[in-house]
Simulated assay, not measured.
Amino acid sequence: MDATSEDLRALLDRDRIRQCIERLARGEDRRDGAMIKAAYWPDSVTDYGVFQGDFDAYYAWVIPGSDAITNTQHVLGQSYTELDGDSARVETHVVSYHRVDMGTEERDTVIGGRYLDLFEKRDGEWRIAGRTMLYDWYQDWGQSIDWSQGVMGMPFSQEWFSGRANGDRSVDFFKGSN
């Protein structure tokens, strides 16, 4: 393979890896089991500090997810990727927001950290073989606003404008139904 072909292969591999990370973030935010399964190898392991286990245990933990977490959003930053044949080491910065129902009130919390992912390419497909979460900071932003009031003093014209982990409008959007 010539240098240009190798560069193109590396570019495509990095793109497929990033797509996998994006697919997983969306799957976790929407609690979409198919997207999550498409991001991990079945024999993968994860360690989030507050949870450690194989894929089946991780899947049971994240799907359906805690009913107390009504909304999440994982904002992905840069990824640093080192390719090594059919494996890769990837560090991706993440800021994850969680709206948590505490029983008496909902609170907005946010975590900043980094995913350390071990990727493997099997049969031409890149997926996560192992993930460790590093926590850089955490902030409790306090009591959440009441979505029924809209934002900035202006009411929403439809209830579906506020995001949520389950029943989010974006699911229908990607199915082509508005």
Rank of each mutant, 00 (worst) to 15 (best):
G33F: 05
A34C: 01
M35A: 14
I36S: 02
I36N: 00
I36K: 00
K37Y: 06
K37I: 11
K37E: 09
A38R: 06
A38E: 08
A38H: 02
A38L: 10
A39V: 06
Y40N: 00
Y40G: 00
P42Y: 04
D43I: 09
D43E: 11
V45W: 06
V45C: 13
T46F: 00
Y48A: 07
G49V: 04
G49E: 03
V50D: 09
V50K: 09
V50M: 12
F51K: 08
F51W: 05
Q52G: 04
G53R: 00
D54T: 04
D54H: 03
F55R: 02
A57T: 06
A57E: 11
Y58H: 08
Y58V: 01
Y59V: 07
A60M: 00
W61H: 10
W61T: 08
I63A: 04
P64E: 07
G65L: 06
G65N: 08
G65T: 10
S66H: 12
S66L: 15
D67N: 14
D67W: 11
I69E: 02
N71R: 14
T72P: 03
Q73Y: 14
H74T: 08
V75I: 15
V75H: 13
L76Q: 07
L76V: 07
G77R: 02
S79A: 14
S79F: 04
Y80D: 15
T81E: 14
T81C: 15
T81D: 12
E82R: 15
D84F: 10
D84K: 10
G85I: 03
G85R: 09
D86T: 07
A88C: 09
R89P: 06
R89V: 14
V90E: 00
E91P: 02
H93F: 09
V94D: 06
S96G: 15
H98L: 10
H98F: 11
R99M: 09
V100T: 10
D101I: 04
M102L: 14
G103S: 11
T104M: 14
E105S: 13
E106P: 06
T109H: 11
V110W: 07
V110C: 08
I111P: 02
I111E: 05
G113I: 00
R114P: 05
Y115H: 08
Y115G: 03
L116T: 13
L116K: 12
D117S: 07
L118T: 15
E120V: 15
E120S: 11
D123I: 07
D123K: 03
E125I: 15
E125F: 10
W126T: 03
W126F: 04
W126L: 03
I128D: 01
I128E: 00
I128V: 15
I128C: 07
I128Y: 05
A129L: 06
A129N: 10
G130E: 15
R131V: 09
T132Y: 02
L134M: 13
L134V: 13
Y135D: 11
